[in-house]
Design a protein around this nucleic acid. Structure first.
Lengths: 361, 361
DNA sequence: GCCGGACATGAAAGCGCTTACAGACACGCC
DNA sequence: GGCGTGTCTGTAAGCGCTTTCATGTCCGGC
């Protein structure tokens, strides 16, 4: 049977080509033409049946669906994207840090995005030089993007929003035209620090973490500093710089503790804190008796370590979920003013700050 | 100036349309036509400059690059994919489990894939009914796929390989035509169990984990069972079924320990084990004095918990990395027989099995 | 002064889909 | 019996790229 619906000549040799080129790549997937052929209808009708945009006679629809089934037809995503001008996909880009924090955010994001029918692309910039290009590249594959931390410069973001690409920024200062979500930082830093100063009466502090690369950290540091000042407790001039992982915490704490002996180490995240505990113990210091240590995030290990790590719980999954939902609203046409959401956090008192000594939790 | 290279009429009103339709979606990104226009060349030349496929005169190239720059042109990914028949993207699909194990695998995968110039799409099936459709959908966006565990049925996999889609299976039984990577299970399970039986002399065991849904677990269970049998130590008939997370471990262990009092709990992963420790302590049992507990994976929390968790370290990132590399080879044309890689694991003895009692690590 | 080849570029066909538009057909009504 | 009206379906123009093929153009060699 000859193809009924082919543009004259246009499809000549299509199958031959398909076979040849099919060794790999997009492979020998059936195309809408083959389905149309088999069902004895035009490709337009096939498309209509598949998308349900226009009523199609019952019998026709049946034939089309049968053909789709027999050929195991799955529409080509790139063709569809090209025609629709949409990708039905969202991206998320995060920096080098690969710990539990980012994993949870991504998971929360993926879960919601999937529910909303969007695929999700991930990109970790690893502080690479090519970050800019990588993000731009990613941007050309998605309808919306969430960007964590200082992965790329403001110009890139401005560029993207100018292009009309909806953006949600996370753990990063706002930029014109983009929504942001963040966990509450200042208030929880204040609560934490006040707990240490007033409830425990500590008078000597250090702060581990790099406030220059992380907005979150600089906010926490600022509030921490303010509370000390208000309480007239001497404090460090600046945070002790420190890579945001366990090893970074261990090294920074080791170096610090060999020079000074603060009573408390306030750390910018749990991994640093856990590394610091290791360093302290290696130096023969008992936590919390000789040195109190606190973290941020409340990752799994914080709960299981002994002493249990006092920390500030962040709604990591919820951060991701919020971003996914917001992006969806934007893509659904919401053109309102950018929103700047701040999600609540919670102080979790465990033993590492000196609480619950009896049970060591 | 009139467009030099436009198909007569075909591009009429392009800009008007672009402006109109641009409010969102693919936006008013510049197209290759605009670049060509601005540089005074044909789109073919622009393409050639950008891809470097064919030599272009120096001066021409300069003009094109200038135009690209001025218009901030980024080629449309879907158009390119459609024309090339390639996506330059890979996918990874994993089941519901969202813990550190999967996070690490994904990270290792992303890192290598990014280096190889491929974007990565992630999909978590969450045991959803629609998993099949979601995976098929994902498959239409990528050139290759890695699939973890029993996320979808064998028919789907057969379907995909038949289509010529390179597949790497992880933590899953092989399927014709697909590569697989797994962590070594039997040998390490044997070493672990022998350690417990011979070095510690334990004679009463339970095994927590669901061997019916996880290939890894069923292999571990089998080797565990074999060692007990060889040593003539009575053991359970079957694993105690248990969800693969902390809460699952806590609940299953609680229920089990209220009925029986095995001396050892061998758990299918660290999260279950950590949950089990919680349950044991809640019942007033001391670990490891009253009850030894072991895990699998060596996640961060295993290292920090007290007692330190005895476990089997898996090279999670390396699993992901291997999959990414293998996929790349396949896409580069390697059509050799499927490979079935097994990556080494390592027993990590900490305190929860009864070792290192003095320091409680 | 003419010819063959190298080199640079343009024209146009596709990639596989969506969708505006138009055509075909059946029906019911005056 | 002619003519709207409504329903279903086909035609073809795009979507923005890549790539094959053809067309110049410019040279050096004879």
């Amino acid at each position: 049977m000859k193809a009924l619906t082919d543009t004259p000549g246009a499809r000549a040799g299509r199958d031959a080509v398909a076979q040849g080129a099919a060794a790999r790549g997009l492979g020998r997937d059936a195309t809408i033409y083959q389905v149309a052929d088999r069902a004895g209808v035009s490709i337009a009708t096939v498309s209509r049946v598949l998308r349900g945009t226009t009523p199609v006679a019952v019998e026709t629809r049946r034939r089309v669906l049968a053909a789709v089934d027999e050929l195991r037809f799955t529409p080509s995503r790139s063709a569809r994207s090209l025609a629709e001008g949409q990708h039905a996909a969202n991206g998320i880009v995060f920096p080098d840090l690969s710990g539990p924090y980012f994993a949870e955010v991504v998971l929360g994001y993926e879960e919601v995005a999937a529910e909303l029918g969007r695929s999700v692309l991930i990109l970790s910039t690893h502080g690479r030089q090519a970050a800019r290009q990588m993000v731009l590249d990613l941007a050309s594959r998605v309808d919306g993007l969430v960007i964590l931390g200082r992965t790329v410069g403001d110009e890139v973001l401005a560029d993207l929003t100018a292009r009309g690409l909806p953006l949600v920024l996370m753990a990063r200062d706002p930029v014109a035209g983009a929504d942001t979500v963040n966990a509450e930082n200042s208030e929880s830093a204040r609560v934490l620090t006040e707990h240490l100063v007033h409830d425990h009466g500590y008078r000597s502090f250090a702060f581990l973490g790099d406030a220059t690369t992380s907005t979150d950290t600089s906010q926490r540091w600022a509030a921490f500093r303010t509370v000390l000042r208000e309480a007239k407790v001497p404090g460090p001039r600046a945070p002790t710089p420190c890579a945001f992982d366990e090893e970074g915490g261990r090294i920074a704490a080791d170096r610090l503790l060999r020079r000074k002996r603060p009573r408390v180490l306030v750390c910018a995240n749990d991994e640093i804190a856990l590394g610091a505990v290791l360093a302290a113990e290696a130096l023969g210091l008992r936590v919390p008796d000789d040195l109190a240590v606190t973290g941020w995030d409340d990752v799994m290990a914080a709960r299981h370590s002994r002493p249990g790590l006092t920390t500030v719980r962040q709604p990591m999954r919820e951060l991701g979920a919020w971003a996914a939902r917001r992006l969806h609203e934007r893509l659904a046409g919401d053109a309102s003013e950018p929103r700047h959401e701040v999600l609540p956090t919670q102080l979790v008192q465990r033993a590492s700050c000196g609480c619950h000594q009896e049970e060591n939790r």
